[in-house]
Amino acid sequence: QRITLKDYAMRFGQTKTAKDLGVYQSAINKAIHAGRKIFLTINADGSVYAEEVKDGEVKPFPS
Rank of each mutant, 00 (worst) to 15 (best):
P60Q: 08
V58T: 13
P62S: 04
F12V: 06
S26F: 10
Q25I: 15
K37H: 14
A18S: 07
L21F: 02
I32V: 07
S63L: 12
S26I: 10
V58I: 14
I32T: 03
L40T: 02
I42N: 03
D20W: 03
F39K: 02
H33T: 14
K19I: 10
I42P: 04
R2A: 08
A50C: 04
A18Q: 03
F12N: 06
A44L: 11
I38R: 00
S47E: 07
S63W: 08
Y24G: 15
S47G: 08
S63D: 14
I32E: 02
T4G: 09
V53R: 06
T4I: 04
R11I: 14
V53Y: 14
V53T: 08
D55M: 08
E57Y: 12
P62T: 05
A9P: 00
G22Q: 07
E52P: 01
S47Y: 07
I38P: 00
V23M: 10
A31I: 07
V53A: 07
S26D: 10
G22P: 00
K30H: 15
A34C: 11
E51Q: 08
E52V: 04
A9V: 15
R36L: 11
I42V: 11
R36T: 05
A34S: 13
I42Q: 06
V48Q: 02
D55N: 13
D45Y: 04
V23F: 04
Y8L: 01
G46D: 05
H33A: 14
A9D: 02
E57G: 10
M10P: 00
N29E: 15
M10Y: 10
L21E: 00
K6Q: 13
A50W: 03
G13T: 03
I38D: 00
T41E: 06
R11E: 09
Y24K: 15
E51F: 09
P62I: 05
S26E: 11
F61K: 02
A44D: 12
V23C: 09
L40G: 00
K59F: 14
S47H: 08
K16H: 04
F12K: 03
T17D: 01
E51T: 09
V48D: 00
L21A: 02
S26T: 11
E57F: 12
R11M: 15
T41A: 06
Y49N: 09
L21T: 03
K54S: 13
V23R: 02
Q25A: 14
I38F: 01
N43D: 08
L5G: 00
Y24D: 15
D20G: 04
E51Y: 10
G56F: 07
V58H: 08
F39S: 04
Y49F: 13
I28F: 03
A34H: 10
Q25E: 15
F61R: 02
Y49R: 10
A27F: 14
K30G: 11
P62M: 04
S63P: 11
V23D: 02
K54Y: 12
G56I: 04
K6P: 05
I3E: 06
I28E: 00
A31G: 03
A34Y: 09
K19L: 12
T4K: 08
N29H: 15
K19A: 13
Y24C: 15
P60I: 07
H33Q: 14
R2W: 15
P62R: 04
V48E: 00
K30L: 12
P60M: 07
A31Q: 02
Q25M: 09
L21I: 08
E51D: 07
L5V: 02
A50G: 12
K37G: 07
Q25N: 08
F61E: 02
S26M: 10
K6C: 08
A44T: 11
E57K: 13
L21Y: 00
K37Q: 14
D7I: 05
S63R: 13
I32M: 07
A27I: 15
Q1G: 11
F61V: 02
Y24A: 15
D7T: 06
R11D: 04
T17F: 02
K54V: 15
F12D: 01
L40E: 00
F39H: 05
Q14H: 13
A31S: 05
L40I: 15
M10C: 11
S63C: 11
A18L: 02
A27W: 12
T17P: 02
G22A: 05
L40K: 00
Y8E: 00
V58R: 08
V53S: 08
N29Y: 15
Q1P: 10
V48K: 03
T41W: 12
T41G: 05
R36A: 07
G46K: 06
T17A: 11
A44F: 09
M10N: 13
S63A: 12
G35V: 04
K16V: 05
D45T: 05
A18Y: 02
D45I: 04
Y49G: 06
Q14I: 15
F39I: 07
T15N: 12
P62F: 04
G13K: 01
R36N: 05
R36M: 08
G56M: 07
K30Q: 15
N29R: 14
F39G: 01
D45P: 03
R36F: 06
G13A: 01
Q25R: 14
E52C: 04
A18T: 03
G46W: 05
N29L: 12
T41I: 15
M10L: 13
L40W: 00
V53N: 08
T4H: 09
N29C: 13
L5F: 01
G35W: 04
A44C: 09
L5N: 00
R2D: 03
A44P: 14
K54N: 12
S63E: 12
V58F: 10
I3Y: 15
